[in-house]
Write a protein that binds this DNA or RNA. Structure first.
Lengths: 105, 105
DNA sequence: ACGATAATTCTAGGATTGTCGAAATATAGG
DNA sequence: CCTATATTTCGACAATCCTAGAATTATCGT
């Protein structure tokens, strides 16, 4: 995870609707949720939701797989961990977390 | 830190230039850096840099204080910690980190 | 007051984003 | 094939963002 990759992820999560979608998917866990189920939770027009999910998929934060007529969305936990690792390592104090430090810069 | 606050911080950090500014300030530590020093590092026009710093200040991620002719910028470490806590608690697996969990919801 | 330095505000342009109805595509079942 | 369901793509519009030169404000030293 480099700075530009991180910025891209942060940009996508930096929209209230998308952050809510992502949080919903994280809470759903490895089973994921269909687009329609997400829509039931958020109550926004399908085209708007599809637009936002497209952004998340494009950034790699969400993966989709078809199951019959439904498209199941799942968060990429590893990428999210990578993002948090980046923020912790590059944009935090690191005080009291020496094991996270990389080169004692 | 609620979802909208988090989204606002993420949005501001989700721009490569601003993320680089913020990382630079974090690396500078509690002493901070003047706007001019940041400009020396990044090499972008003063008005563009000022615009981006304004965004970071507006979101509370960066604080400024004047020292003579210079404006010193410092990151708000506590807010950044709060953001990472939010992401860890609401947008992560939480597997193997039970002490980070808040209410086992 | 004057000149130099530090940084912001003004202004304007093109680029991108967010929204959502309408139309189109994909799948399932009879 | 026809109908219903699930979701995306298209199209349009307003709103916001990014960039950066020019002008302005703030501070310091003399």
């Amino acid at each position: 995870m480099n700075l530009n990759q991180a910025a891209r992820c942060l940009e996508k999560l930096g929209n209230p609707t998308r952050l809510e979608v992502f949080r919903l998917l994280v809470r759903a866990g490895h089973e994921g949720l269909s687009v329609g189920e997400i829509q039931d939770h958020l109550g926004i027009p399908a085209s708007t939701l599809s637009h936002h999910i497209g952004h998340l998929v494009n950034a790699g934060l969400v993966a989709q797989q078809r199951e019959g007529r439904q498209l199941i969305c799942k968060p990429d936990f590893a990428l999210m961990d990578g993002l948090i690792d980046f923020l912790t390592a590059e944009c935090c104090m690191l005080t009291g977390k020496p094991e996270t430090q990389r080169d004692a810069g």
